[in-house]
Structure formats: C-alpha cells, structure tokens
Design a binder for these strands. Structure first.
Lengths: 245, 245
DNA sequence: CGAGCAGTTGATTTTTATCAAGTAGCGTGG
DNA sequence: CCACGCTACTTGATAAAAATCAACTGCTCG
C-alpha cells in the first residue's frame, strides 16, 4: 500500500498544469509542445450522450481517456445490482491509468460529454520521452488516493447527514475553484446517483435534503441547483460537530 | 480524478521489484545500484513497538517511509473519535508519498515494526536521476487507487457478512502471495481494528465471525489464526451470491 | 397539456449500533 | 508453575439509523 498525504484542499484542481480544457490534452503545462502534438495526433475525440458508456467492466484496457467537458460517473456493481459510484469525473480528469489488462469499473456519461481517447501504447512511448508527465500523473494519483481515503471515512463512519453535507461542500469547493459563484452549486446528478455515491438510498438523500432545507441551511433553486444559505452550519454538520445531527 | 483499472489480483504484490525486504530500500529491481546506495545513505532505520506512532495527522510531511517488517495501521479520525482505518501496511509498503505539506492521517505500529525513513528532498533528487522509480511508484499508486475503490464498494454497499468475508479472502490472498499456507490466515489486528477497517463495530465483527464458525466456513485456531475450511463458500458470501447472507 | 420520471413523504421493517454482562486468553509476577 | 488481572472477545437485549415498501407530487420535455 502507498499512503499519500496531500491535504484535500483546493490546491490540486486549481493547478493550471492539469487543466485540460484549453488544449486538447495537456497534463503538465511544462510539457514540450512537441510531445503534446504527438499525443494529440494519436488521439481521437469522443462525444457521448447522457447514459452512453465510456468503458465497461471487463473490457480490454487499451485506452486512456481525458474528459474535456461534461460529467462522467465511474462505478462498480455487485452481482445483484447494488451499485457504488466511486467517483464523478469532470473536465480535465483522466480515466484508465494503471497497468491491468481489463477495466474494473463502468464509466458512463452523466450529461453530454466530450473526451479525448488515446492508445496506451502511445502514452507509454510518450512517457519515455517526457518524464515530467509521469511526475505530474504520480502527483495526481496520490491526490486521488487521498480523496479516496476521505471517501472511505465518509462511507465507513459518517451519518447520512454528515455524508450529504460533506458532498455538498465538496461540490461547492469544486465550483468555486472553477470560478463559479460561491455557495451556489449545480447538481448534474440525480438523487439516485448521489445515493450510490454516498452509500445511501434515494429516499434517505431526499429526506436529509429536506431536513437541511427546513433548517434553513440550504435552499433549492430551479435547474437542480442548491444554494448554501448557511455555509458554516453545513460545515459543522459535515464534520459531525453539530450535536443535533 | 484519475480512475485506474488494474485488477486487484496477485500480480502487484508478488512483483519482486517492489519487495523491499531484501535490500534496505528498493522500489524497482532495475534501479541503478548507485541510486539505491544514495537513498540508503540518506535514510534512517526505525524500530517501533506496538502502538507507537509513525506519523501523526497535521505533522509536517517531511519524510517518506518504507515498511520493512511488521504491520502498520493507517487511519483517519472524526472530531468525536470515530475512526476509519484506511489501510494496513505490510513489509514493502510505502507511506507518505504525495505533495501536501502536512500528513492527513495517523500511522501507528500494530505489531513491532521496522521501517526505513528518508527525507522527501532526497527522494526528489533521486527521482530526477532515476525516472524508472517514478514509473514504478505511479504503477503502485494506481494499484492502490483500485484497491481503494474496491474498499468504497465494500463500505458503501456490502453487508456485514460480505465485508468480513471479503476481508478474510484478501488476507488469505496476501498470505498466499507471501508464500504462506493457503486457507490459513493470521490476524495481526484486533476485532476493534477489523471493525474500524470494515466500517462496523467489534460486536458485529464478533457476531459475524461466530456465524461463519457455526456454518463451518471457518475455524478459529490459536494465536489469532483463522482456517478457511470452505473457501468457495466464503467467496460466495464475499460477493453476495449467498442468498442466506 | 399531459405523460413519465425524478423526487418527496409516510409507515414499517431490517440491519447494525449501542448498552450490558459475562468469558477466555495471555502475560506478569509471585 | 500457577494465580491473578487485564484486555480482547463473545453473547444477549434493546435502540437507533437507514432501508424498504408504498403512495403521492411536481418538474420537464415532448
């Protein structure tokens, strides 16, 4: 096991190095233009409609993906259909790193997605020429590992209220990083998807949302948007400091 | 987010590249001897008794660790003391990668531990000379990420029985890889630690263990050892295929 | 405008946590 | 070597949290 220790604060995603939207694919701003062009040429651009599949569990893991716009859900299934969403991918996020020969998760578009796909063999060739790329990817992977550990704490030990509060704050932090309005978060996913991400049911997510609404902590706006009216209260709830739960 | 796809099979840990016991510190067998020597010189060997702390949350993240023997628990705490163990580290595992300036977890010896500690600055200098090292670490990190996603599925969607069955099979797989007897697993951790790893309570772990015993799936042996008498039945329980739960 | 799906709310059940009371294994010291 | 005491573990009774089952509401998009 490798245990990383990055603070899960804003630092990582605000790194312009890792913003992939401006150029077709860039993992580090310091990469030689030449390398970027090579990888760009070896890549294809994909467009997916909501519900369409990017990768399926068990498929041969021949490609890497880089999401350029939209949102992707990555999840695992149990035999009887229980689903755990292990993450949502946004613009700039990568999919399919790692060395196994099969994918071990499903990835589907949540809303219309554009992604950049390229062969692993090309990626490996490029890595040989651009070690900085590997360094940037290692940093990202460690940051992801840290986020995964936070999610384990959430799934293993937090109450439904704490889970939802944490989730909303995470989304708000992401929106703020992306330059959006603070305390106004858009939910691109359904209650069922939130539930499958937080290890709850739709009903519980709905009930807890209502409770937050009743208490004046959040307000529901049109177009699946939530306004955080009392950020401090939400933060207290997320960390379990609120005695009233 | 980076989503990796490695199968969580034996491949990784059986890789002699990553076995750190033979030499003080080696992450890849192909590393230049020179680099190894340099890192070895820059390192200190630590010995810890059970319960002693390797890193504390909030400490300045100045060092990397490599466990050479024993078992370490890595965990996160909530304000009221709820604990989630995010992983157990065994010989050859690394701790403290990642770029944050503070550790965001606690790491303590579970049984007597020896570890190798070295400054991050040394590590960074070495990376510049040995890009293969980074490559090996990226592979590991992605593998860890995959394991973390499996754990999210466990914590978010599996029943107590499924969690314990999965855990025992994981330990058995690890023991087999290490060349131990198949179907005989040693538990270096207490029920409370298993519970905090699986998102349960000690009582629930104890009850589920008893149920497995009663059903003839496992047998308790002296010295915290469990014999898996019906591996197939345990596997069925782990994946939720057993209708009787 | 209306059909269908997402979401909400309520009643009840189930699972697991909590509280409580033992029991057993183990290391220590007499 | 045995007795003691500690801690880990087990088991039982009860409570709490969330799941399940069910009905209804209200967006959103043809």
């Amino acid at each position: 096991m490798i245990a990383c220790h990055a603070r899960s604060d804003a630092a990582f995603n605000s790194d312009p190095c890792l913003n992939c939207q401006a150029r077709q694919l860039s993992v580090c701003g310091s990469l030689a233009e030449d390398g970027l062009r090579r990888l760009g040429q070896a890549s294809e651009t994909l467009s997916l409609q909501p519900g369409e599949t990017l990768v399926r569990e068990g498929d041969t893991a021949s490609h890497l993906f880089n999401i350029t716009s939209g949102v992707v859900r990555v999840y695992k299934l149990l035999a009887d259909g229980r689903r755990q969403i292990v993450g949502f991918l946004f613009a700039g996020d990568m999919l399919g790193l790692a060395t196994g020969d099969r994918y071990v998760f499903e990835a589907e578009a949540l809303e219309p997605v554009t992604a950049c796909r390229f062969r692993k063999s090309e990626y490996k060739a490029l890595l040989r020429e651009l070690p900085e790329l590997e360094s940037a990817l290692l940093d990202r992977a460690c940051h992801e590992l840290q986020a995964a550990q936070d999610q384990m704490l959430l799934l293993g030990r937090k109450t439904a209220m704490e889970r939802l509060a944490t989730f909303l704050l995470d989304l708000a932090a992401r929106a703020r990083r992306a330059g959006g309005p603070p305390d106004l978060v858009h939910l691109p996913m359904t209650r069922a998807e939130i539930a499958d991400y937080l290890g709850l049911t739709t009903e519980t997510v709905s009930r807890v949302t209502s409770r937050l609404k009743t208490r004046g902590v959040i307000r529901l706006r049109p177009h699946n948007t939530i306004e955080i009216t009392r950020p401090a209260a939400l933060a207290a709830l997320a960390s379990g400091e609120d005695p009233a739960g």
